[in-house]
Design a protein around this nucleic acid. Sequence first.
DNA 1: TTGTATGCGTTATCAT
DNA 2: ATGATAACGCATACAA
Lengths: 343, 343
Amino acid sequence: MKREEINIKEVAKRAGVSMATVSRVFNNSSYVSEATRKKVEAVIHETNYRPNILARELIHKKTALIGLIVYDLVGEGIPRMVNGISETLEVNGYQLLIATSKGSKEREQNHFNTFLSKRVDAILFSTRSFTNEHAAFIQRLPVPVVVLLQDTKSEPISCVTFDNAGLSYQATKALLKLGHQSVALLGGPANSLTAAERKNGVIQALTDSNLSFQDDLAVATNYHIESGYRETLDLFKKNKPFTAIITVNDGLALGSMKALAELNYRVPEDISILSLDNTVLADASRLRLAGVSFSYEDLGKEGAAIVLSHLKNEDNSTQKLKMPYLLDLAETVAKPKHEKPAY
Amino acid sequence: MKREEINIKEVAKRAGVSMATVSRVFNNSSYVSEATRKKVEAVIHETNYRPNILARELIHKKTALIGLIVYDLVGEGIPRMVNGISETLEVNGYQLLIATSKGSKEREQNHFNTFLSKRVDAILFSTRSFTNEHAAFIQRLPVPVVVLLQDTKSEPISCVTFDNAGLSYQATKALLKLGHQSVALLGGPANSLTAAERKNGVIQALTDSNLSFQDDLAVATNYHIESGYRETLDLFKKNKPFTAIITVNDGLALGSMKALAELNYRVPEDISILSLDNTVLADASRLRLAGVSFSYEDLGKEGAAIVLSHLKNEDNSTQKLKMPYLLDLAETVAKPKHEKPAY
DNA sequence: TTGTATGCGTTATCAT
DNA sequence: ATGATAACGCATACAA
């Protein structure tokens, strides 16, 4: 299995030509007589010669390598995003180097350093909570960085995001318009800025409608189905009335609906359910799950596209892109039954 | 943003020492006097010097890079496998280069070639249908290759797999033991060997029990929830009796149960449902979904471990590992009601 | 303890 | 049209 890789010098020797000629044949970089070309190509073929890209990259100071740092690869969103990134990069001749941080700042740092040492051409960075330190650090890097899923706010760093505050605001507004006055929220992990933004959107919508948000009715989850199930059961132990549950993703909505079914609440007659992030999982619901949907895959593609544009243009002004979303109230949301608020 | 990277020669000059000394300081490769070390470290720090790994790799002929080719990153299994791989590789100081084939042999080929040119130290390869050509090709490669999710059979190529035929055989046997005599199967895509193996396991179990498998009751799907839903509806249009549905994954089971609910069939009283691949998705089911579960994450870790062992030992005998699985009949499987077989 | 010089496998410049 | 040779940035054997 382990065979010595052949190099250009060896090919040159066997073909009876110089290294330069082999290089020219391989890269079509200059005219070579038909005769020698044939000769060289024959040797290349029979030796199964593959140029050592490292040497080439050493000269060109380009690796066609792009580093990606993500939290992890569990769940629906991130993998799809990676899928989109990978697709776009591949089409453009770039390779994707991937690393997971599991939320550790230290791991993030290590990955950045390794990537830079590996001389990646650019870095795509995703974290659950983008901080000032991140911003400061990134701006000192010698390669373009595009932040995914997190708004870089006033910092001059490109990013592509979902409009979390906006979409949750709109979704909540729609719920209130139907007459709901008290909603519960299954949020994300405490350290997730995305989750915080979505929560803020919900609160803002309530406030704008002169309704108050019950802090007890907002619980943190780890995004998983199981968590949605458990937290929903807990919700009813608090004896605070609510007529709708908003979840930050569809997994939580599924878990929640499982709990509701067990407790003999009907959806949407007794309780409305709305997910702020519908993926294909939503299809598992008996009813068409109401909620906001958007494409992680497209976000990944756009992120990759921005990074490539930074790589091509020398101007590279920072680009901030918000991906579109679609709100569909579908079948799990209805007007509340005001005469008997659910507990 | 774009700054010129500083190199070892420049650091040496600024520190007033030779390149060799800088190298020694950076790699702790030899003793350096405390004084010069301090001097050099100061310069390293203030210039933010990062060695160009490409040059080092060019010398050492090792990149600490491992290539991974997968079908895509959609669904539950593959991303978790990648997560496991990434985790193990990272701990061992390797980086993961990832590429998707989308089932195209041509893309697979391109990825292999790019990886080899990039001088990856090893390749992890996953495909939906491992062929003889794959085997022949892989054996001529100059780096170790470990195949994931597909058995390499008699070929001397390491692999780590789930025992698809075995687990589906056992699961089906359990079903038959309860009294089921006719089962429907929501299989995978036509080109998936994994799906074919699982189907064969089902058929074998039936045959061994002197029951025959109704070809009409086996349908191909694309693994998705929606597909499970649709195909289940179609199943009932065939007017062939069956009392249980086996699905090759839990997404299909969820889709199927959605259809059953719509048709007013009760699970498991009227129809039993059993999934041959329970992931976290199974939690979305109202009932605890019966089925086989195993860990893609662990499979990824084992695959990575095997590849690393090939990298370390020079012996590298081929290793074939079958991952364990767990069969749980849980709440969606029951004895059939023989008096009134479902259609 | 530190410095010098060579080589890793390419590409590119300059000859021929 | 082709060849010789100098980089690219680092590690290392050998000198000093």
